[in-house]
Simulated assay, not measured.
Amino acid sequence: MELKGHERCVSRVPIFSHLELDELEEVFQRINHQSMKKGEYLFMAGDRSSSLFVIHKGKVRIYRLNDNGEEQLIRVLTHSDFTGELSLFSADEESKSYAEVLEDAEVCRINREDIYGLMQKYPNISIKIIESFAERLNDSESLTTNISLLNSREKLIEYIRTHTKNDKLVLTMTKKNLASYLSMQPETLTRTFKKLENESVIKKINNKSYDILK
C-alpha cells in the first residue's frame, strides 16, 4: 500500500512515524482535514481545544502575548509539524498561546478521543508524545535562559550555533519573526546581523542565507 497526500504528512509526524502502513491508514481514517487562509487562527489564547493539529501545507506561527501586549514567538510550524498536544491532557485548561496561519494552509485535526484510542492500541504513540513534550520543554527552557541572561549579540550567536548546517545558516522564518523569537526589536536584530558581518563571523548570501565563517 502506498501512502498519498495527507497520509504521507501523518507518516512524517514523529509520534506516528514508527507505525506500519496499515496502522498509518487507521490514523488517517480518524483525521479531519481543513483548509485555512492566511490570517486565520487554529486557536487563540482563552480557547479550550481538544485536538491535535498537524500541518500538511503552509506555515503556522505559535506565539504568546506578555503582560505589556508584546508578542513572543514560540515557534513556526511547517510541513509535518504539529501543535495542540498539551490540550490532549488538559481538556479544561484555556490555551495561553495563539496559532496564526502565516501562509494558506492544509491542516489535519485529530480529536482527543481518537488519540486516546490510538494510544491504547499502539502504546508507542504515548512514548513518542512524551518524547516530544520533553524536547519542547528543553527548547522552551533554553529560550527562557537565553532571553533572561544573554545580550542581543549572544542571543543571535547562540541561534546561529544551533541552526547552522554544513557551515550555512538558512532562516526558516522572517527576520521580524526571528526578532520576536529572540525577544529583541527588529532594528536591533538587523544591526546585530550587520555587526557579525563586519566582524567576518558570517557572510550574507541573501536575506535568508548566510555562510558561517567562524
Rank of each mutant, 00 (worst) to 15 (best):
I147V: 14
Q72E: 15
R8W: 14
I127K: 11
M119V: 15
L102A: 03
K4D: 10
L42N: 04
S180F: 01
C9T: 15
E187C: 01
I110G: 05
I127G: 00
T144H: 03
E135G: 00
L102P: 02
K121V: 04
L88P: 00
F28Q: 07
I157Q: 13
V76K: 01
Y116K: 12
I212L: 14
M44E: 15
L196S: 08
K203F: 12
D139L: 05
N151V: 08
S35M: 10
Q29P: 02
S50T: 12
E100S: 00
T174L: 09
I205R: 05
D67A: 11
L77V: 13
F53L: 07
C108L: 15
T162D: 12
D22V: 03
I15D: 00
L65C: 05
S183K: 08
K214L: 11
V170L: 09
S209C: 09
K175Y: 05
S90P: 00
L156W: 13
S11H: 06
L24R: 05
D92Q: 07
S87L: 06
I130W: 07
S90K: 08
H163Y: 11
R30V: 03
L3D: 12
S50I: 04
G5V: 11
T144F: 01
M173Q: 13
H56G: 08
H33F: 09
F193P: 02
L42R: 06
S51W: 03
E2T: 04
R75G: 10
R61M: 15
K38H: 04
E26R: 01
L178H: 04
L178I: 10
G46T: 10
I110T: 04
P14L: 14
V201Q: 07
T172W: 06
Q72H: 08
E131P: 01
S11K: 11
K214I: 10
